[in-house]
Each structure stands twice: as C-alpha cells, then as structure tokens.
Nucleic acid binder design. Structure first.
Length: 574
DNA sequence: GCCGTTTTCGGCCCGACTGTTTTCAGTCG
C-alpha cells in the first residue's frame, strides 16, 4: 500500500531530523503529513494523478513533490541521503523512553554509541556517568527503559485496555478525596489499540490521591511521582498515568487529557485566534503572554462552548473534521449501545460455538435485544465444524420450533458462508434462500494477490443471497495482517449490489476499521454491528463494534441492526 | 515544511516531572 509506505518514510525522515536537531516545526510537518496519509481511504496515487495532493491537510508543494517522486521511483533521494548520514541503530536508541535526540547525540558523540546493545553495555559499566549532565540515576533509568522497550513493543488491544482501566477506576473511585474520576486518553476515544492508560481525578487533595494510586496492588514500579501527576507500571508491563486537578479545572483537564494531541492543538489554535488561551486548567482571556480572566473549565461542555463549539464526543476527537462540524453545529448524533436491537453474528454449538441456540436466545432476550441471527459456519470450513446442508436444515427446523416459545423476540436463520477460491459460495442458492441473513466471508487463500482476493469478494457480493460481507479484511490485531484486498473497490461494489458490510466487534478483529467504515457510511452502505460470538460472554463485544462505529461517525441510521425486526428483514433483501 | 477573514513572512499548543543543577534543559504526552 502506497499510503502506508510513504507515511513510514516521512516518519523516518522526521526521526532523523529530530536527531539532527533540525527545525522542530519542519519535523512536525513531516509527522503531520504521515498522519494524513494513514487516515486516507483512497490510494494516494489517485490524488497524485489528478494533481490534488496539496488539497490534503499538511501537504504543501514540497511534500507533494516528494510523494510524486516516491510514486514514480519507489524511493526518495533526500531520504536515502539522510539515512546514510546517521547510523541506523541510533533511531532505536532514541526510541528508549527517556532518551531523546539530545541524549542520543551526546552518547554518540562522546562514546560512539550507535546501538541499543552498546548503550546497555556502557550503562552497565557505568561509562555514562563520566559524561556531563549524566549521573548514576540516568544510567539506571536508561537500563530500565531498555527493559521496557523489549517488553512493551506492541500496543494493547482496546478489549484489554478498557477493562484494565475500568479496574483502576473502580479501585480508586471510593477512596477519600476522590470527587470525580474518569478514564481519559486513547482509551476514552476508543482507539483500537492503546499504548498506555490515562486516568483523571478531581480532588482537593492531589498528593493524597497520588499516594493511593502509586500504592495500588497493581503497581509494580513507580515511573514518576509528582504533586499532581504520576505514572506506574503494572506487573503485566502496562503503563498507567494519573493526573489530579481541582474540580474547577476538571472539564479542561479532561479535554486536554483525552486528546488526541492533534485535536488539542487545533483547539488551542482556535482559542488563540479568538484572543483566548486554553490549557488543562481552563479557558482564559489573554493578551500576549498575559493571562487574564478564566471563563470556562469546570465541564467539557463549558470549555467547548467558550470556543463556540458543540460538545464533541471523545470518539471523534482526532482532528478529522470534527472541529469544523462542531463550529457549524452539524456533528452527527452517534449510534449508541442502546440503539442496537439485536446481534447478527452468533455461532451456536451446531458449529464451533459453545452454547445451544435456546441458551443464546434467552441471553440475548435478557439483554433487551429483539432478535438474534444464528450464523454458523458453512460446510467447507471443517476446522470450525461447518454445517452440511442436512445439518443446516435440521438447525432451521429447531429455530422454527424455538420461535414458538418466544414472544417479542425472534431467532433468525443465518449462516457465515465461505467465499470459495473461485468466488462462489459454499451453499447453493436454493439452500441460501431459506435463510434470513447470509454473511459471506473469506477463510482460506489469505496469501492470494490483491486482484484475486478482491475479485473473489466482488463475485460473492453479486450473489443475490449474500446479504452482509463479514470481516472484510481478515486482520487479527497484533497477530495477522489484513489480506491484500482493494477495499475501495469492495465498497463501491457493495454499494452497487446493496450488500451490507460488517463491523466485527471481536476485540482482535474490529474489522471493518473506523476509517473504512466511515468511508462506507459516506457512500450510503449499511453497516452490521456484530460480535462474532462463540461463547456467551462474547456478546459483550457489541460495545467494541459500537466504538468503531462511533469513531466512524455512524448514526443510528447507518447501523443495520438498529432497525426493528421487520425493517431489518426488508433491508437485507437485495 | 505548512499556512493564511492578522495572508507570502513569521508564526507554529502547552505544561509537568526528572535529573541535574541552584535556574534549567530534556523529555514526555
């Protein structure tokens, strides 16, 4: 993928320039351009082709030229030159927590350290403390940082981070002096992966709260402990940051601590233009560097209002158009968990699920759902005990029987049907037509080239009984890359064939992702928010499907399973 | 290197904590 490759090059350049202590704003420009590239749903080559590169945020004439050069030649002369000018290992040295460009340069200039290994050795032999401004404490911190680096290379899944963060909040919330407490940071924004957990507390006695926090049973090591701010490391290598402010500043601190960084920068720029100043303590009238009166800060709504903005839901705070929309009062009313009327993707013990259909149905009804689709695997997927046509018939019959027991709740007949290697489906049409909801998905041939996989999916969507495309990219977060699929073509074809697309809420999948789900909804494609449940507790994954949907700016109208039963059945028909 | 209802130059978000110092630079988020 061009976008990812070019973004990586720009990030690399930024890192090298950082080491060279080049202009910080130039460095930021490269980083911003990389962020822009990663958030695009279309191939950057399309923008290059119709000369619209500079219409993208953060891409000016110079970077547009560089993008064109990469697209044309596969590389960038300036980048090659920069890479040669700096030993490769230095970039790794700079990624150690606590080591930035200045320390890396000092270490390189004085001790010829150009790799993490050499740094480790030098620190262990106490060679660092011979240098100016470095003493034993720094040596220890660097060794600790190296340990952390090898431990925490991967970002944590939202499905791991959110429960962990909720655990900390539950532990602290009843402690003396805690007036308000909330999860902040990327966990609150519901990003699919999380680096560390941020918690905000309002209290009149910050040091007391800091002490409670650093003495939690989860704490393995205290990384920092100040008057209003502390960081700890848990046994599992998870970093948790706590910030404590007074109640009057809580809203401003929550905005600041929730981020994203890009959103905060835009908010603060907007304030400056209005002659205001925003920090984590509030919104202030300001003249030059002089701060005058505080005009907001207690609640987030108040802070946004002071800048003439509607309240912006945390999931949208990525500087992807939410500030412009909030200025014009046109933020979407995001889909919420209570809008969801049923789960569409649940496996029973007919295939690889753990529970009987009746048990699943009872649980779903008790959750307040109006329907559930039992969508077991099809015959070819032997590893998941896919159903033969006879078994499927037997299952359908059982569903008919069970439905007589339920009032105001319906079990729907479904299947997750394999897309075979030639793009045909794993059941014939006369079997498919007996089903209420047919998911189609790829479970084989992941390594095929993009053209082939894409054609398979397009062909599958041509089938009039293929209602929903399931986990469209096949990725497993931190475990398996998406297969090569031209998602842009898939979305266009989904629109043409009236095929819905799944947002699979399984914490390892979250597939479709937020960026592409937003593109799909913009095209008018319906999204199915599902859990891909195999055990009853998996039904809770719906919260993550909703999280992706909210990050994708989806409203209730975009979600297939926010529809009442009859309308759902109608909407599924092609 | 980008950007512009303060527009082609001169800005570019803002503050806490640490380790090393005696007032601050470096790093981080």
């Amino acid at each position: 993928m061009n976008n990812q490759k070019i973004a990586d090059i720009f990030d690399d350049i930024a890192k090298i320039l950082e080491f060279k202590q080049d202009n910080i704003f130039k460095i930021r420009a490269y980083q911003k351009a990389a962020v822009t590239l990663r958030s695009l749903t279309e191939d950057i080559a399309k923008y290059a082709k119709n000369s619209s590169l500079t219409s993208l945020p953060g891409i000016g004439k110079d970077l547009a030229d560089k993008i064109n050069e990469i697209l044309k030649t596969g590389t960038l002369k300036v980048y090659q030159g920069l890479k040669k000018s700096v030993p490769e290992g230095l970039m790794d040295v700079m990624s150690i927590p606590g080591v930035g460009p200045k320390k890396a340069k000092l270490l390189y200039d004085e001790l010829k350290i150009d790799s993490v290994e050499k740094l480790k050795e030098a620190a262990e032999k106490h060679k660092l403390s011979a240098l100016p401004h470095l003493k034993e404490k720094t040596e220890q911190n660097i060794l600790q940082g190296i340990k952390l680096l090898s431990k925490a290379k991967e970002r944590m899944l939202l499905g791991e981070a959110l429960p962990a963060a909720e655990g900390v909040v539950n532990y602290l919330k009843d402690k003396k002096g805690v007036e308000k407490i909330e999860i902040a940071g990327s966990t609150r924004r519901q990003k699919e992966t999380i680096r560390d957990i941020d918690i905000l507390v309002a209290s009149e006695n910050p040091p007391e709260i800091i002490k409670e926090f650093t003495h939690m049973p989860h704490t393995e090591k205290i990384l920092a402990e100040g008057r209003t701010k502390a960081s700890v490391l848990t046994g599992r290598g998870l970093q948790i940051d706590l910030r404590v402010v007074d109640v009057e500043s809580y809203g401003a601190a929550l905005v600041y601590f929730t981020g994203s960084k890009e959103h905060n920068i835009r908010i603060r720029e907007l304030a400056i233009k209005k002659g205001l100043k925003v920090n984590e303590y509030g919104v202030f009238t300001a003249k030059g560097t002089k701060i005058n009166k505080k005009i907001a800060g207690k609640t987030e709504t108040e802070v946004y209002k002071a800048l003439n903005l509607e309240f912006i839901p945390p999931e949208l705070r990525e500087d992807k158009g939410e500030i412009e929309a909030a200025l014009e009062n046109r933020l979407p009313e995001l889909v919420k968990p209570s809008d969801i009327k049923g789960d569409l993707h649940v496996h029973s013990n007919y295939s690889d699920g753990a529970h009987a259909i009746e048990e699943i149905a009872n649980t779903c009804r008790d959750m307040g759902y109006k329907y559930v689709v039992i969508s077991d695997h099809s015959k070819s997927l032997k590893i998941a005990r896919g159903l033969s046509e006879e078994e499927l018939k037997r299952k359908n019959k059982e569903i008919d029987q069970l439905n007589k027991k339920f009032k105001n709740f319906k079990i729907l007949k479904g299947s997750e049907v394999d897309i075979l290697s030639d793009g045909t489906l794993d059941y014939p049409d006369d079997v498919l037509k007996e089903l209420d909801a047919v998911f189609v998905s790829i479970h084989s041939g992941f390594k095929q080239p993009m053209e082939k996989i894409t054609e398979r999916i397009l062909k599958a969507m041509d089938n009039k009984y293929a209602h929903i495309l399931s986990h469209p990219t096949g990725r497993l977060l931190n475990a398996r890359d998406p297969y090569a699929v031209d998602i842009d073509r898939v979305l266009k074809h989904a629109k043409q064939t009236h095929t819905a697309i799944e947002i699979n809420g399984n914490v390892q999948r979250l597939d479709l992702d937020d960026i592409n789900a937003r593109a799909a909804a913009d095209m008018g494609i319906k999204l199915a928010l599902t859990t891909d449940t195999h055990r009853l507790d998996n039904l809770q994954f719906m919260r993550y499907a909703v999280s992706v949907a909210r990050r994708a700016w989806l409203t209730r109208k975009d979600a297939l399973n926010a529809l009442p039963l009859q309308q759902l059945l109608k909407a599924l028909k092609k």
